[in-house]
Simulated scan of single mutants.
Amino acid sequence: MEKTNWEELNAELQKELTVDNEQFYVNLLIYVRAKTMIRDHEKAEELLLEILQDILEAQEQGISAEEYFGKNPKQIADEMIANLPINVWDAVKLGLVAITSYLVVTFFPTMVFPDKAIDLGKLLIGGLAATVFAILAMKLLGYSAYRYQSKFWRLVPYLFVAVGLIGCIALLDFISTPLTISISPTIGILLILLMSAIVAGLFYKEKDKDLWLPFIPPLTCNAIGGIIFRLDAFSGLLNSKRGALIIAGCLIAAMIAQYVIIFVVYRRQKNRSLKS
């Protein structure tokens, strides 16, 4: 029997919520997911789906989510969460996903310069830091779901995590480890093609592509650059003034494309919310 995709079904049913009910449920969803990181993930998603279905049934009868659950949903959520079984392995898998995502995103920029050795130790440290900040982000989001009502204070956790992560990545430039490897141009091209195929396959299977679309321009730019600079015909271009201008132009174009995609995705998500 095929395993139910609770998150996908949840996202589809959320489209049927009214604006007020959606805001109520999104806060509850963020809080529950943040508080159940070490508990059974599938059971938590089943719980969220049951709550959503209850809200939809009440909505059909003209009862709002706040009227149905009361003005203290946090207390109800805490009682439900307390009954969920603890599953440390789910938390470990979440950490592995965060590390893998970081390594995939940082792999392509690392491979742009053919003569630069790959510092595996630095990548691992960065992956662990990214995991810590991902967990911290979830905790802060869960904490702020029922703590703050103003838009400004709701943005504070995002800003805090973003600044911390950027600072951590900046500090990595000053770190080096003995776990470095150098690869030949041919092996480098094969690795880039292999990773590109893996990323393309994962992106194709992903249902909600909006989250990953902004990463496509910079990753594509870095992948193409990493391949071109490993070809004999273009090997000298990297150290020339003309090559530096081309690299700068491509990076600026990729950055502009990334911001355009972020804007388009934001507008699309906003329009979907308004139609709900």
Rank of each mutant, 00 (worst) to 15 (best):
M195V: 11
F69A: 01
V26R: 01
E60C: 04
K209V: 04
Q53A: 00
L171K: 05
D90T: 13
R267I: 04
T220M: 09
L47E: 01
V260S: 10
R272F: 15
Y148W: 14
P217K: 05
V199R: 06
S273K: 14
V88T: 15
V260H: 06
I181M: 13
L159M: 08
A197P: 00
I261W: 08
K3H: 13
P185S: 10
W89D: 15
S182Y: 03
R33H: 02
Y25F: 06
A137W: 12
N27I: 01
L238Y: 15
V163P: 03
I55D: 01
E16C: 04
K15I: 04
A244N: 12
F107C: 15
A44Y: 03
A77F: 06
I118A: 12
K139Y: 13
L274N: 02
T186I: 12
E60F: 07
I228C: 11
W212T: 12
I183E: 09
F24Y: 10
L13K: 07
H41L: 08
G243W: 14
F108K: 03
G188M: 01
V265P: 00
C250Q: 08
L159G: 10
S184W: 11
L165C: 02
V105D: 03
P217D: 10
S144R: 06
R230Y: 11
A244S: 14
R154W: 01
F107P: 12
I38Y: 09
W212G: 12
I99W: 03
K122P: 12
N239C: 15
S273H: 14
T4I: 14
W6C: 01
A58K: 00
L84H: 08
A129Y: 11
L120C: 15
I216E: 01
G225I: 13
V156K: 06
A58P: 10
L190N: 07
V88N: 12
L141C: 02
Q53F: 00
T100F: 13
L274E: 08
M1K: 11
I30R: 01
Y25S: 04
A130F: 15
Q59A: 09
V156G: 05
D173H: 08
A253Q: 12
D40G: 14
F108A: 05
A134S: 12
G70F: 00
L141N: 08
P178H: 06
I55M: 01
Q14C: 05
I262G: 00
A134K: 04
L213F: 04
I246F: 05
L123Q: 15
V19D: 14
Y68A: 06
L202S: 11
N10Y: 03
L251Y: 09
W89R: 13
S273P: 15
L48E: 02
A65T: 03
P218L: 10
V132T: 04
D119H: 09
G142P: 15
R154A: 02
E79A: 14
F215G: 10
A197W: 09
A82P: 06
A223Y: 04
S276R: 14
L194K: 11
I189P: 08
Y266H: 02
H41W: 09
P214M: 02
Q59P: 08
I262T: 08
L94S: 14
E45S: 02
L141V: 04
A65Q: 04
R33N: 07
C221A: 12
A254Q: 11
A145M: 10
T177Q: 01
I81P: 08
L9V: 05
T36F: 04
E45V: 02
V32C: 01
G95E: 07
A65G: 13
